[in-house]
Amino acid sequence: MKIKVELFGVCREFSDKDFIDLEFDKNIQIKDIRNEMIKFVENKFPENKNYLEMVKKSAFSSKDEIVEDEFMLNNNQTVSIIPPIGGG
């Protein structure tokens, strides 16, 4: 199954695009997305511990709602990674 992860804040540094496409061969939950993002960062930016920390501290949203780690995802769903915030 395919999931699109929209990137925000510091996570925009992970790609030249605004999103990352992930593929899975089973039904997945948000915690699987987080684990896959952790692997992605460890492979692509092995020296950058801050990026890794940011993924671990990030929340995820679906349809503008923050969702918990056990939230089930459907094929072709889009989610957003929400790293720690700080506007104003």
């Binding site: 929340a59 969702v67 918990e68």
Partner: peptide, 12 residues
Amino acid sequence: AWLEGKQIQVKN
């Protein structure tokens, strides 16, 4: 530098 922000709390 991206500023370190506040972690969003997830309601379980």
